[in-house]
């Protein structure tokens, strides 16, 4: 027989019933009252049984709900870990992709001076061959020689200038590429560096007939992370090309630097602008208005992290739909040392 939690109450009831039977003979006048009492007790005993069942069931529901909650929390935590891993991968591949774009830019830019140098060199080779033929025939006149000297002077000057230009380009690209791939800290001049970065973006800019004007005093010398600056500017320019000038209209962007410490850098475009509802979210990871068209929504998040982290500064966005967008960066001329303050990292 199974154990009965209410055995005592049931015994009391049995006992009371027997008592009433015995009382029927000795004190019949009490019988009815006692009967009512017993019924009331019986009812209350059943209420109690019922309430215990009710609260047991509620308790069980609560426990089940808690288990479910715990399970969902674990799921959410796992999902978060996966998301972070995915974000790391995207950030890494974004960096690789921007390096790829840089290499394409390098190839394009260097093509022009190298091409000029090659055609000058071949022109000079032809002229030299002609001169040798004339000499071999013993027919070299003074005017032939003078003409050759003029050609040689012009072409060698052009070859030299274009090779120097190619060398300078390679040097600056190398600098940008190294900076971008590493997080090396060094002292650099902001103005020239901005121009070097823009050079690497020339192919994209030229394609849409866009121009970027740079207004930067020559002085500011920064002690910090040129790679971060390069990545920030590249992201801002590419964003303007992707979002601000979608209608194909050529645009004008400006980069204006004022102040030497803290430095204020404003990047502005005169394109479509950002809707007021979107503006507060543009720095959030995965916020994009181009989902499904290749936008991951990480560009500005990375920009934000670079400004707040390595540069130790702030970034804000302002926009007027139809009139353009401006990003304002403010950061110290000397970037914080790692662990110098909590914001770095």
């Amino acid at each position: 027989m199974s154990f009965n939690l209410f055995a005592a109450e049931e015994q009391v009831i049995e006992h009371a019933d027997r008592l009433r039977e015995r009382l029927a003979d000795v004190a019949p006048e009490c019988c009815e009252d006692l009967g009512a009492l017993i019924d009331a007790f019986r009812r209350s005993y059943r209420d109690q049984r019922r309430l215990v069942r009710v609260s047991d069931r509620l308790q069980a529901q609560l426990a089940a709900a808690n288990e479910e909650l715990e399970r969902r929390r674990n799921e959410a935590e796992t999902a978060l870990v996966h998301l972070r891993e995915a974000q790391d991968i995207i950030v890494r591949s974004e960096r690789l992709a921007s390096l790829g774009a840089l290499v394409a830019g390098v190839a394009h830019e260097i093509n022009t001076p190298v091409g000029i140098a090659v055609s000058c060199a071949s022109h000079l080779a032809d002229a030299t061959q002609r001169l040798r033929d004339t000499v071999d025939r013993g027919a070299l006149g003074r005017s032939d020689f003078t003409r050759y000297l003029a050609t040689a002077t012009d072409t060698t000057a052009l070859i030299l200038a274009n090779c120097e230009r190619a060398a300078a380009l390679i040097h600056s690209f190398k600098q940008v590429a190294v900076d971008r791939a590493s997080s090396e800290r060094r002292v650099f001049k902001l103005g020239p560096y901005i121009r070097e970065v823009l050079l690497s973006l020339q192919p994209e800019l030229r394609q849409g007939n866009h121009t970027v004007t740079v207004d930067c005093p020559p002085e500011p010398e920064l002690d910090g992370f040129p790679g971060a600056v390069s990545q920030i500017l590249t992201n801002l320019v590419l964003n303007a090309l992707q979002h601000a000038y979608r209608d194909g209209r050529p645009g004008t962007m400006t980069i204006r630097v004022t102040g030497d410490d803290p430095v204020e850098l404003v990047f502005a475009d005169d394109g479509a602008g950002i809707a007021p509802d979107d503006l507060p979210h543009v720095f959030e990871p995965f916020f994009t208005t181009r989902r499904g068209e290749g936008g991951s929504g990480l560009g500005l998040h990375i920009v934000h992290n670079l400004v707040v982290g390595p540069l130790g500064g702030t970034i804000t966005a302002a926009s007027e739909p139809g009139r353009g967008t401006a990003f304002t960066l403010r950061f110290p001329a000397r970037a914080p040392m790692p662990h110098e303050d909590g914001a770095a990292g």
Partner: peptide, 14 residues
């Protein structure tokens, strides 16, 4: 419903 609401219901039913 909680337990005391259950008791109130029983009173109503009674």
């Amino acid at each position: 419903f909680n337990s005391s609401s259950a008791k109130a219901l029983m009173n109503m039913f009674q």
